[in-house]
Simulated assay, not measured.
Amino acid sequence: MTDLAGGDAGLIAASREDPECFAVLFDRHAPVIHRYVARRLGRDAADDVTAETFLTAFRIRARFDPARAGVRPWLFGIAAKQIGRYRRQEVRALKLLARTGCDPVADSWTDSADDRLVAEAAVSSLAGALARLSAGDRHVLLLFAWADLGYQEIAEALDIPVGTVRSRLNRVRRKLRTAAGAAGRPLIEAPVHEGDPA
């Protein structure tokens, strides 16, 4: 079985009668959840957090509201709660990144050695700024930047109003601009998602 009518929501509904249907959701969404968690906590914790995210999702699948915009925000919300348990480890990793400027998880996203050197220098100051953010602000920012969720999806994932998402992102952008300015580098603005205010 690869899919049912109703997409992911249909799979969740079907998994109440046939639990193996939930495996399709795992296959479909676990890689992106794992990448997101690995960026936040490192590869060692990503396996455990991803497994716990899907185990929790399976346990509470009867509470999933099929009227939601999609399954991804629901899964990222569960992952965010699991990440909260690893918060100290995440802050330590960000502080290490701030000191070394080397992100052991991120793929090489540029082929130019000059661009890599400039990027690594900027990463140190920005990682330090990320480590100083509150957990709520960091969740909003990283769901936006790393998980590529829109404002409404972030609101659903974290069970907060869209206005709170907007205000947190504004506050974080100001803090990161200050950090980037202190490092003598401009902050690259994140892309605007469809349906998000410009």
Rank of each mutant, 00 (worst) to 15 (best):
A5C: 00
G7K: 00
D8L: 00
D8M: 02
A9Q: 02
G10I: 07
G10Y: 06
L11Q: 01
A14L: 12
S15F: 06
R16S: 08
R16F: 05
E17M: 05
D18R: 14
D18H: 14
A23E: 08
V24G: 05
L25H: 15
F26T: 03
H29Q: 11
P31L: 01
Y36F: 15
V37T: 09
V37Y: 05
R39E: 07
L41F: 07
A45H: 14
A45M: 13
A46C: 14
D47A: 11
D47F: 08
V49Y: 05
V49T: 09
T50E: 08
A51I: 03
E52G: 05
T56F: 10
T56Q: 14
T56I: 10
A57F: 11
A57T: 11
F58A: 14
F58S: 12
R59T: 15
R59W: 15
I60V: 15
I60D: 15
R61S: 14
F64D: 04
D65M: 13
G70H: 06
V71E: 05
V71H: 05
V71P: 02
R72L: 08
W74M: 07
F76P: 04
G77I: 02
G77W: 06
G77L: 03
I78S: 08
I78H: 08
I78G: 04
A80D: 00
K81P: 00
Q82T: 01
G84Y: 03
R85D: 05
R85Q: 07
R85M: 02
E90V: 13
R92G: 03
K95Q: 12
K95F: 02
A98T: 07
T100N: 10
C102G: 07
D103M: 05
P104Y: 03
V105K: 04
A106D: 12
S112N: 15
D114C: 06
R116H: 11
V118G: 05
V118M: 08
A121G: 13
A121R: 15
L126G: 06
A127F: 09
G128P: 04
A129S: 10
R132I: 06
L133W: 03
L133Q: 03
L133K: 02
S134G: 14
A135C: 07
G136W: 00
D137E: 15
D137I: 03
D137K: 04
R138G: 00
H139N: 00
L141D: 00
L141W: 02
L142H: 05
A145L: 06
W146G: 10
L149P: 01
L149W: 01
Y151K: 09
Y151G: 12
Q152T: 15
Q152A: 15
E153K: 04
A155E: 01
E156T: 10
E156I: 06
A157K: 09
I160L: 13
I160Y: 11
P161E: 08
P161C: 01
V162E: 00
V162N: 01
G163W: 10
V165R: 01
S167G: 10
S167A: 14
R177A: 02
R177L: 02
T178P: 03
A179D: 04
R185I: 13
L187D: 02
L187T: 01
A190E: 12
P191T: 09
V192N: 06
V192K: 08
V192R: 12
H193T: 10
H193G: 12
E194S: 13
E194T: 13
G195W: 08
G195L: 07
D196Q: 12
P197D: 12
A198N: 15
A198S: 15
A198K: 15
